[in-house]
């Protein structure tokens, strides 16, 4: 009788809330991205120096890092909740979770490196 609804002792409330919060943050950041990249700079041609100047202003790496973090969390958490639906065995859940964690860590590392590189690059 119990097996018809197996309580897991795991609540999903925090994951759900964080998914919503990260969605709102992503929406605001995307809006900002579109305004800055596609509307404010639309009428004039943008050259390398201008892009690098923007990339090396104090707010740019902060925003990009926030973007990276929230997009990674939102995307991977979404994939994880789908995988949890379709994978019921503990072993395969562990495999998928480890894989997502590894992919997330690698992408976070590569993304952070790129942001730092852009910020510290010497403009000729």
């Amino acid at each position: 009788m119990e097996k018809n609804f197996k309580q897991t002792s795991r609540s999903g409330s925090m994951a759900w809330l964080l998914q919503r919060i990260s969605a709102v943050i992503l929406f605001v950041l995307l809006l900002f991205h579109f305004i800055v990249y596609h509307f404010l700079t639309q009428s004039r041609s943008v050259d390398y120096l201008q892009v690098m100047k923007r990339a090396q202003s104090w707010w740019f790496p902060l925003l990009q890092f926030m973007f990276l973090l929230t997009a990674l969390y939102h995307g991977l958490n979404g994939v994880w909740s789908v995988l949890e639906d379709y994978t019921t065995s503990k072993f395969w859940r562990l495999v998928w979770y480890s894989l997502l964690l590894t992919v997330g860590t690698i992408l976070l590392f590569v993304g952070t490196l790129t942001i730092i590189k852009l910020y510290t690059l010497k403009i000729a």
Binding site: F5, Q7, T8, S9, G12, V82, D85
Partner: peptide
Amino acid sequence: EIVNDKNGIWRCH
């Protein structure tokens, strides 16, 4: 408390 579970309300997407 019953519905606040991975197999409760949080399985609804």
